[in-house]
Simulated scan of single mutants.
Amino acid sequence: MTIQKKSGKIFDNHDLAILRVLLNDSRKSLQDIGHEVGLSTTSCWNRIKRMETAGAIQGYTVKVDLAQLGYQDTVIVQVNLESHTDETLYEFGRVLATIPEIVEAYLVSGDYDYYIRIAVQDTKDYERLLREKLYKIPGIRHSKSSFVLRTLKKSDTPLI
Rank of each mutant, 00 (worst) to 15 (best):
L129F: 14
I18L: 05
D86V: 09
V108N: 02
K5R: 10
Y112L: 11
Y112Q: 06
Q4L: 06
L66E: 10
Q68F: 10
K63I: 12
L159P: 03
A119K: 08
R141M: 09
L81C: 12
N13T: 11
L107P: 11
N80E: 05
Q68N: 12
D156E: 12
I160Y: 02
I48C: 06
C44H: 01
R47C: 03
R150F: 10
R150W: 04
L39K: 04
Y135E: 11
T2Q: 05
V148L: 11
I160E: 14
H14V: 07
V75S: 01
N13Y: 03
Q4P: 03
S155T: 07
L30K: 01
V62T: 15
I160P: 13
D125T: 03
I160Q: 11
L129I: 06
M51T: 09
E101D: 15
R47K: 12
D12A: 02
M1C: 03
T98F: 03
R47S: 01
L129H: 06
V95T: 13
A56V: 14
F92I: 03
I10T: 13
V95E: 04
I76T: 08
P158N: 02
Q121D: 08
T85W: 04
N80L: 07
E127V: 06
K9L: 07
R141A: 14
V79G: 04
H84P: 00
R94Q: 13
L107N: 03
K5S: 09
V75G: 00
S145G: 03
Y90W: 09
R131D: 09
I140V: 09
V95I: 15
K154Q: 10
Q121E: 14
I118R: 06
G70D: 12
D122F: 05
A119I: 12
Y106S: 11
Q72F: 10
E132N: 10
S145P: 01
V62I: 11
Q4R: 15
S83H: 07
V64L: 13
I48F: 05
Y126V: 06
Y71M: 14
E82G: 07
K124V: 11
D156F: 12
L19N: 04
S146D: 13
Y71V: 01
I160L: 10
S83Q: 14
G70Y: 13
Y114L: 00
T53Y: 08
D125N: 14
T157W: 09
V75D: 08
L152N: 09
F11H: 03
E104N: 08
T157K: 06
E132M: 01
T157F: 04
S26F: 09
G8A: 04
V21C: 15
R141I: 05
D111T: 13
E36G: 01
K136Y: 01
S146P: 02
V103Y: 08
L69K: 14
D25E: 10
V148S: 14
L81I: 00
R128C: 08
R150A: 11
Q31L: 15
S26L: 00
E127I: 11
Q78W: 08
T41V: 04
L39W: 02
T123L: 15
K144E: 09
I137R: 01
L134N: 01
I137M: 09
K136D: 00
I99W: 04
T41H: 13
K133C: 00
Y115N: 04
L130G: 02
F92E: 00
E36L: 15
L23I: 08
T151S: 14
D125Y: 03
